[in-house]
Design a protein around this nucleic acid. Sequence first.
DNA 1: CAGAGACTATACAGATCGGTATACTCGTGT
DNA 2: ACACGAGTATACCGATCTGTATAGTCTCTG
Lengths: 193, 193
Amino acid sequence: MSTEEQPQRVMMTRAARRVLEAAERLFYERGIHAVGVDLIAAEAGVTKKTLYDRFGSKERIVVEYLTARDERWRAFLAPYLDAEGMTPRERVLAVFDASRAWSAEHGSKGCSMVNAHAEISDPAHPAFPVIAGQKEWMLALFTRLAGAVALDDADRLGRTLLLLHEGALVAHGLNIFPDPIAHARDEAAALLG
Amino acid sequence: MSTEEQPQRVMMTRAARRVLEAAERLFYERGIHAVGVDLIAAEAGVTKKTLYDRFGSKERIVVEYLTARDERWRAFLAPYLDAEGMTPRERVLAVFDASRAWSAEHGSKGCSMVNAHAEISDPAHPAFPVIAGQKEWMLALFTRLAGAVALDDADRLGRTLLLLHEGALVAHGLNIFPDPIAHARDEAAALLG
DNA sequence: CAGAGACTATACAGATCGGTATACTCGTGT
DNA sequence: ACACGAGTATACCGATCTGTATAGTCTCTG
């Protein structure tokens, strides 16, 4: 099996890690187009030379930013799902609990994938598969978890849970009403009967 | 009563209208930061001089863009709600029908308010009240329409409908599964009993 | 016909954009 | 002892960004 997934992987040296940390914070809080590479380098305490030696382009930093964020979210979610002695119904609700905790400790500007998608017009942009993949993964997760509650209605329930979840993230980011993720959790509970 | 709402209103001449039309299309499709005033002027068939004579700043164009879009949406929605002989339940579902029709004929990049919010970091930005106002209006609408179905549960239903609606717009923009707005409509119908 | 407002055309200012080049330092491993 | 990779510092490239200045045209109206 050939291992030529990407043109070349990024060497995650210490400086590269600092660049990625700075980029994650700045991209999420201010938006991707609003943040320049000079600012990222300055905030990371790194020269632009180093930044370009590691990543090669800003586009690549964006892709790594989204990929890293997705991986962190899945790692953050895992213990909520792996806890022992949960009913299938509780396991669905645990996703909302995890999202609520994530949003509390990380920023409150909504979903980074949705926000990034708003700034990217070209469908051929290498960040597109990352964004689409994250949402597909979430849909598959909800569908699988819902299947353990009501096998014959997994697809419908999975989609509805995804809509509630995405809607809650948007409502949380825009501060439309207090604690929308908790509300979505309650509605998900009612939905599962 | 003093009429000093804005520093000064925008004179909507023919050229100004063309600028706003171009800005609406470009901002929505490519994002706000990714579109410069030179491009807007060129697409509108207008000089930058004229653009700045009318609007004064790019920030102002952004505000007018969002305001105009909101007004168009409300005007688009109105006939769906004003139709005669609808039950309160049907009136709620009509919002989803309107959203589906709107998304079909306009772009499919999700909610322009949510997308704009993703690009604006400063809470003091004059576009903030427009964005927040639109979502508050939608929540109030859903709550009012839900109150005609089940008066004692209007607040809860209104919020849930909003989450479903926002989630559907996101899912539509990201193309996660086919026709999510129709799915949200079906779930809203089930929710209302 | 004369004035006023809306508009075009072009050039430019000052800053910032993504990206590159040169020259140097430092620490590690062999 | 020496090579090498990672990093710093700084200057620069062309392009593009928001915003302004000057000069002139067009059309409508009093």
